[in-house]
Amino acid sequence: MSKRIKLTEEGARILENMLGHFVAETTGVYAALVSSSDGHALAQWSQSELHGSKLSAMSSSLLALGESLSRESGQQACQYVIVETLDGFLVDLRVGERMVLTVLARKDGSLGLLLSACHQLAEELSSRIRKE
């Protein structure tokens, strides 16, 4: 079994469409990216200019650190790494074992709603990818 992730053009388009719907429908969200666990950009949807490949590598590092910190602290599996800024939120979470979802949002909505929307999208992406 190959451990490689290689999206077909069709696969990437499906992911981008899902991200696009999510951005359009979720309060405050202006960008969403899917990356591989080891930091390669796979798909993104953004309302503004973003350096996708940099954000993918950084998200992979940050989530790996969050998971490492959770383990070190003796807490259960890390669910989200959340960065709160003056402008908004950056959220990183796993999509299955081999992918990462990054969501960028302004501070329009509540963080709780944002996280639950991110969680649901990650599940949808994960089951969609398993079907591919």
């Binding site: 190959s2 451990k3 490689r4 992730i5 591989s36 666990s37 080891d38 390669h40 992979s60 590092s61 989530l63 790996a64 650190l65 998971e67 490492s68 074992e97 081999r98």
Partner: peptide, 11 residues
Amino acid sequence: TDVLATDELSD
């Protein structure tokens, strides 16, 4: 902070 490799390194 090791994560699963998904590129040629995973071979």
